[in-house]
Simulated scan of single mutants.
Amino acid sequence: MTTSDLPASDLVERVAGAGPNTYRELLGKARTTHRAPVWLGRGGDAGVGVLPVPDDPAVDVDAHDPYRVLADWWPGPCPEGCTCLEPFSGQLPGLVRAGRVDRSTSRCTVEEAAAMADEVVSYGVGVLAVVRAARPADVPAVTGWVGAGNYRHQDNVRISAVLRSWEDRFGALLVVMTESTLLLSVAYPPTTFKEAEQVAAEHFAFCPDQHDPQDMAGTVYTPRSYGRTIRKARHWRFWWD
């Protein structure tokens, strides 16, 4: 039986009453057990089982180059005189830390994710689930998540390909998934302004609504101004309207 033959109830197992320690243990073993933990929204469904799931999500995710994915989604180039993507105007800049150390399973990465899990439990905003995936990045592709539904060009397989890249480069793990939001813990965030601006460009390509958070202040970000908010930040939040 392939993954796509399984109903959502078999792909996502809810773990009643679980806490951060259970999450930490599951996360540390995920690459071996192929059972990745994730905190779903308060209701526990998080929009899973809505979109089609590939026969072998892991293989399909692996087939995509994360830079090519983000470059295809990049909103640039800007027309002459436009500054909405400053300091960039043309193509997406290169990926920060590409080809360096894989930080996806480091102790610091696991502990940072567990710290976010502790916050989730403290605020009572999630239900722990275990997904048939070897790593948290693959959860959207495996579960048929509907969160980016208003942006049909952004399919879950390619979303997971980018999440894998962030896991590797920044120790950025998907910890919470709701119907419209992904929350990532970040163990090794960008530390310089230049790095932060480049990562901000990746965020803008990944989530079209990231530049316009629709907050009460009417904020509209550029990669430069948004980059200041994620420099050394331990949490990344992506929300699709």
Rank of each mutant, 00 (worst) to 15 (best):
G90H: 09
G90E: 11
Q91M: 04
P93A: 04
L95N: 03
V96R: 10
A98R: 15
A98N: 14
A98Q: 15
G99L: 06
G99V: 14
R100I: 07
V101T: 14
V101I: 11
D102G: 06
S104T: 06
S104Y: 07
S104G: 05
T105K: 05
T105C: 02
R107N: 08
R107Q: 11
C108V: 13
C108G: 00
T109Q: 07
V110H: 03
V110M: 04
E111P: 11
E112H: 12
E112I: 00
E112V: 11
A113T: 10
A113K: 08
A113G: 15
A114M: 04
A114P: 10
A114R: 14
A114E: 09
A115Y: 03
A115D: 08
A115V: 09
M116A: 06
M116K: 09
A117K: 00
A117L: 00
D118S: 14
E119T: 15
V120C: 03
V121G: 00
S122F: 13
Y123D: 10
Y123H: 13
Y123R: 14
Y123Q: 01
G124I: 00
G124Y: 03
V125I: 15
V125M: 09
G126D: 01
G126Q: 12
G126T: 07
V127W: 02
L128N: 11
A129K: 06
A129V: 07
V130S: 04
V130C: 02
V131K: 12
V131A: 05
R132G: 01
R132F: 02
A134P: 11
A134K: 13
A134V: 03
R135Q: 12
R135F: 00
P136Y: 10
A137M: 06
A137N: 04
D138W: 07
P140L: 05
P140A: 04
P140Q: 12
P140N: 10
P140M: 10
P140V: 08
A141H: 02
A141E: 09
A141D: 12
V142L: 04
G144F: 14
G144H: 14
G144D: 02
W145T: 05
A148F: 15
A148L: 04
N150G: 15
N150V: 09
Y151N: 09
R152M: 09
H153Y: 04
H153M: 08
H153Q: 13
N156Y: 08
R158E: 08
R158G: 02
R158N: 01
I159T: 15
I159F: 02
S160Y: 09
S160C: 10
R164A: 02
R164V: 05
R169C: 02
R169T: 11
F170S: 01
F170Q: 08
F170E: 01
F170L: 03
G171K: 11
G171C: 11
G171S: 07
G171M: 10
A172Q: 05
L173I: 10
L173N: 02
L173Y: 03
L173V: 11
L173Q: 05
L174Q: 07
L174W: 06
V175S: 06
V176F: 08
M177C: 06
M177W: 03
M177Y: 01
M177P: 04
T178C: 07
T178K: 06
T178Y: 01
T178D: 05
E179F: 12
E179M: 04
S180G: 09
S180Y: 12
S180W: 11
T181E: 13
T181W: 01
L182V: 05
L184M: 10
S185I: 01
S185A: 02
S185D: 07
A187L: 00
A187P: 14
A187K: 12
Y188Q: 08
Y188T: 10
P189S: 05
P189R: 06
